[in-house]
């Protein structure tokens, strides 16, 4: 308590020595959570590596059926949303709650656009044309019919199992992020954030950028197999 000045009492919780220590603890806690997230996605990446090693032919065929254009547009959308989120952290640090709110709106809008593109141009057309692993597997139609001619159908199904699970888990992380963003938007409206109090925005930014990093790897792993 002794090192806490009078003015700091308002925002430094009683179990911390100083504002600096409080911030450090918050950052480390968030990174501990993200290290756990690395382990979670890491397990999936590991499964991906093994099945790709075992089914190189199926991976080539599966990847060739994805649209690099749609994937590239979505990568751009996600990178831009990371940029607007980073700007949001800056506005939180400088106490500009109005611009922080706008940055969060932009980030949320870009995130929703990503999910909309994913559904409209990727998940739904594939599902409709039989490109969904399991009992109803059976690619047909103009876009995906040629996949039925691939010899290694089991490997091809594994490619799409991992495609749906990994991009789906990524999308689920984004959707959870949407909820947290709405809470931060309400707080920004109430002028909550400033130079002494921005850790909630900063830590959510870490989460959002982490989700961006996952996509940075998913994009070449699924769309650019050569």
């Amino acid at each position: 308590m002794s090192s806490t000045s009078h003015a700091e009492h308002a925002y430094v919780a009683h179990h911390f020595h100083s504002a600096e220590q409080q911030k450090e603890a918050g950052t480390l806690g968030m990174w501990l959570f993200l290290a756990q997230e690395v382990m979670f996605f890491g397990g999936l990446f590991c499964v991906y590596a093994v099945y790709r090693l075992l089914n190189p032919d199926a991976w080539l065929a599966g990847s060739a059926s994805l649209s690099v254009f749609v994937g590239g547009v979505n990568t751009t959308v996600l990178l831009c949303s990371s940029f607007t989120m980073a700007l949001g952290v800056y506005f939180a640090q400088t106490g500009d709650n109005r611009r922080l709110f706008q940055a969060l709106v932009a980030t949320l809008a870009l995130g929703l656009l990503f999910i909309a593109i994913k559904l409209q141009f990727e998940y739904l057309p594939k599902y409709r044309e039989g490109v969904f692993p399991g009992a109803n597997w059976g690619p047909y139609g103009h876009h995906y019919g040629h996949l039925a001619d691939v010899a290694n159908q089991g490997g091809l199904q594994m490619y799409f199992v991992l495609y749906y699970i990994m991009t789906g888990m990524h999308a689920l992380h984004m959707i959870i992020g949407f909820g947290i963003m709405v809470v931060l938007m309400v707080l920004a409206r109430k002028n909550t954030f400033g130079p002494q109090r921005y850790m909630a925005v900063e830590n959510f930014g870490l989460y959002w950028h982490f989700v961006d990093i996952v996509w940075v790897f998913l994009f070449p792993m699924f769309y650019l197999v050569r």
Binding site: S82, F83, M85, A86, E202, G205, L206, H209, F210, D212, I213, V216
Partner: peptide, 8 residues
Amino acid sequence: LIVLFFMH
């Protein structure tokens, strides 16, 4: 790049 700059 993301870890160093966006994530500070």
